[in-house]
């Protein structure tokens, strides 16, 4: 299997998955109780105007026709009008998405920087105090809800120590200090989410390292007289990191779930708050748009992982096993 075939295959999978994503989104949001026409025109609208609007929105059509119409529109990036804001959904999302991306990328980066070395150390010092400490740290990180991390950080670092702002988002272009201000606002939310993401990446790094360290080529590297540092980093880690890439991509996508809660805690005006607004005001087109865009983030990060995977693994880069 060449690199090209591999990527064609992955994109093929992605397309099929995306189709199911739209289907699930459509089904879930269309069994929502409540008449969209009533939602738009209000409870006092006349039956005739409701009928007219239903016909206009295509709500009289069979569900599958509605789905196909919706899908076709979606394909042209037309996600309809937001009921709450009266603006195109696509524009609303594109306005908020970069802010959430910033948060998710920062949180994931924080988690990776922390968890890769910890995972390697835990594997090398298997069952020793360092390993136990790392795994305890992981348990605590993954077991405390993100919003609690957030509240505690606000209490300690913002309220008590006054090191960082309690919340909000300032774009670099609007602040005096440019990016510095943005980053000061970013630190607390990104780290509180980062802790939750660390545990899993660390555990995968550890078990992947353990597996590689037990493999024959590592034994041969030792038999060649290589120093332990070379054995661990050059030989074992380079192989161990490959499956971890997938996990990191998954955690990045998981972060997009976390932002729904986290943006609420830190008053961060991004996708999470937008989604929550859509839910609270039953703004179905907006909710559909948000869900699909978030799912797209998951799939794109997965695709990125596949590409990286292929880049790091020569068995994929230069054709398969013989």
């Amino acid at each position: 299997m060449s690199m090209l075939s591999y990527l064609v295959r992955r994109v093929g999978f992605l397309a099929v998955t995306l189709l199911f994503v739209t289907l699930i989104t459509f089904v879930v949001t269309n069994v929502l109780p409540g008449d969209v026409a009533v939602l738009i025109l209000g409870p006092n609208a006349s039956e005739a105007s409701l009928q007219a609007l239903r016909a206009d929105l295509g709500l009289n059509q069979p569900l599958w026709v509605q789905y196909l119409d919706w899908l076709w529109a979606l394909f042209q990036l037309d996600m309809g009008q937001s009921l709450r804001f009266g603006e195109p959904v696509w524009g609303l999302i594109m306005d908020k998405l970069p802010r959430s991306l910033l948060l998710a990328v920062a949180a994931t980066a924080f988690a990776v920087v922390l968890s890769l070395p910890l995972g390697v150390i835990a594997a090398v010092k298997q069952n020793e105090p360092a390993d136990v400490a790392a795994s305890m740290f992981g348990f605590v990180g993954v077991s405390i809800p993100i919003f609690l991390w957030g509240l505690v950080f606000i209490l300690v670092f913002a309220v008590w120590l006054n090191l960082f702002p309690t919340g909000g988002f300032v774009a670099p272009s609007q602040a005096e200090n440019g990016w510095m201000t943005t980053i000061r606002h970013l630190v607390l939310p990104a780290t509180s989410m980062g802790f939750a993401l660390t545990a899993y990446v660390m555990r995968m790094t550890r078990s992947s390292m353990l597996e590689e360290l037990g493999d024959e080529y590592v034994k041969l590297a030792r038999a060649k007289g290589m120093s332990e540092r070379v054995v661990v980093i050059r030989h074992a880690f380079r192989n161990a990191v490959i499956p971890v890439i997938t996990v990191i991509a998954f955690q990045f996508a998981y972060a997009f779930g976390g932002i729904v809660v986290l943006e609420q805690v830190f008053f961060w005006p991004g996708m999470g708050k937008l989604t929550l607004t859509a839910i609270q005001s039953r703004d179905i087109p907006l909710l559909q748009g948000c869900i699909i865009v978030v799912a797209m983030m998951y799939m794109l990060s997965n695709l990125a992982a596949d590409v990286l995977y292929a880049y790091f693994d020569p068995r994929i880069r230069y054709g398969g096993e013989n």
Partner: peptide, 16 residues
């Protein structure tokens, strides 16, 4: 002292 190991399929590092 050099070692010639048993399993040629697993004794070479696949990414180097």
């Amino acid at each position: 002292i050099a070692l010639v190991p048993q399993d040629p399929m697993r004794s070479l590092n696949p990414v180097l």
